[in-house]
Design a protein around this nucleic acid. Structure first.
Lengths: 108, 108
DNA sequence: TCTATATATGAATAGCTGTTCATTTATTTG
DNA sequence: CAAATAAATGAACAGCTATTCATATATAGA
């Protein structure tokens, strides 16, 4: 069972990954640490927006930032999350059919 | 790499799991199919709110509904998602420390 | 049929959030 | 020091969303 507190905590993490731009930001840091500027340029986002999102992701410990000179590089500190994300990205890459109807079950 | 389209698609799924109530609803259907009434009562949510959330979760194929008489039972159709969720719930259950600072790296 | 139960749906709204723009802070170099 | 670059921050706002309440639909039983 999932307590309301744990639901809030885990939900917060999912909520952050729920924004397409944030998800792309995290995904871009999967293979190698990325500087803020590189992320912004790669994903075609403004540095400001990128930084705003990075702050949220950092606060939730989804990313960790490491300053190296003038730049700050971000990558995933959590092996668990990295594996989950890799898995999910692989999953979404595969094709799938679309149905959202309510199925009929036999009588009881 | 994660295309904007895939980011939107996967992000939509994370976004849905990002609401605590929705996350609890999905989690409650992990072990066994649950009727709408059972979900509402178990999680202390109004049937209306529960149904609204269920509609979203169903549309995203995170849950599938099966009518059996007057009741509709919901459960997870996707083994991949079920496994991911079980994994994440287990992860969030374990203790962890809290730091969100920017770490210092050595000069280059 | 009528009644009761179980879900679903529509409308309305308060609160939240992603984005932009302007500004500020940090770091390196001249 | 000043200038340039990289990143962070604050304010403001439009658009979205979770929730509530009222209403509708579906199914079962008498």
């Amino acid at each position: 069972m999932l307590t309301p507190d744990h639901a809030t905590e885990l939900g917060e993490m999912f909520r952050l990954l729920g924004d397409p731009n944030r998800l792309r930001i995290v995904a871009s840091c999967l293979s190698r640490p990325m500087s803020v500027g590189d992320i912004a340029e790669t994903l075609d986002l403004s540095p400001s927006l990128t930084s705003h999102h990075l702050r949220l992701l950092r606060s939730a410990r989804l990313l960790k930032g490491t300053r190296r000179g003038k730049q700050v590089f971000y990558d995933l500190p959590d092996c668990h999350v990295r594996q989950m994300l890799t898995n999910m990205i692989e999953h979404v890459t595969e094709p799938h059919d679309v149905d959202e109807a309510i199925t009929e079950g036999e009588d009881s």
